[in-house]
């Protein structure tokens, strides 16, 4: 703290801020008591609105009261760190993970749903990334010019395929999903992937290599040795990615 600010002034500021977070009547000097509540209301509304806008699927999954209590407790007990309010909702994920064991138990896919929803915000908003230089494109022999604004998600629940309210323990398993921002519209797309294509894309996003050069690894890891069949499958997949602007 600066040397100028007196502890008693700091104390008044701190009490008003604490009141905005916990709603407990503060001991403040010289206030108009029936008006102080507007600060708590206005501040909390900003936070709850930002959270609600970022996580519509989680809002729908939780009971109304559970969501209200979660927003309230998050704001009261978690000191929000990001100066940009639209980035702040990401902080809810670790709060739920660390502080809301009972919610995670009741809704085993809640954390994954929150992460999934945040990916959409993150990809929609994130700074532009440069595309790799596109060279000639023989989808078998050349490395693919993949959209750098993309990522393969590995999931335990099909939050990308099913309404979160319909997901149960029976759905627990291994799922893969490609998330990418469409180059032209800027919209975020999700594409369900088989384990093989998830691996292929993840590998090629890490290092630009041609499918052909991966042949020995594909055979060792996936037991696929039928090269013509593989080439055909990969070619189809390549076409789909081109039409979705995942490949230039």
């Amino acid at each position: 703290m600066s040397t100028h600010l007196k502890p008693e002034t700091y104390e008044q500021q701190s009490r008003l801020a604490a009141y905005c977070r916990n709603g407990e009547q503060p001991a403040l000097d010289g206030i108009t008591p029936n008006r102080i509540g507007h600060y708590r209301r206005l501040v909390f509304n900003v936070v709850k609105d930002a959270l609600t806008r970022s996580y519509p699927l989680a809002v729908n999954l939780l009971e109304e009261e559970e969501w209200a209590i979660l927003c309230n407790d998050f704001f009261e007990f978690h000191p929000c760190q990001d100066p940009q309010v639209w980035k702040m909702p990401e902080e809810l994920i670790s709060f739920v993970q660390q502080e809301r064991a009972h919610l995670c138990e009741k809704y085993p896919h809640l954390l994954e749903l929150l992460r999934f929803e945040w990916k959409e915000v993150e990809y929609y908003m994130m700074p532009d990334r440069d595309w790799p230089i596109a060279s000639k494109t023989n989808e078998w022999q050349d490395a693919w010019s993949l959209n750098p604004e993309s990522e393969v998600l590995s999931l335990e629940y099909p939050v990308h395929l099913k309404n979160a309210r319909q997901i149960s323990e029976e759905d627990h398993g291994s799922y893969y999903c490609l998330v990418f921002r469409h180059e032209q519209t800027g919209k975020v797309h999700f594409m369900n992937l088989s384990p093989f294509f998830a691996w292929l894309i993840a590998t090629m996003l890490e290092t630009p290599v041609s499918p052909k050069s991966l042949l020995p690894v594909i055979e060792a890891q996936f037991g696929i040795s039928d090269e013509p069949m593989l080439r055909e499958q990969i070619s189809k997949f390549h076409q789909k990615l081109v039409s979705d602007r995942m490949i230039r």
Binding site: Q13, L16, C80
Partner: peptide
Amino acid sequence: CDNAHLYD
């Protein structure tokens, strides 16, 4: 205040 943003 006290290491927490309040956004208002």
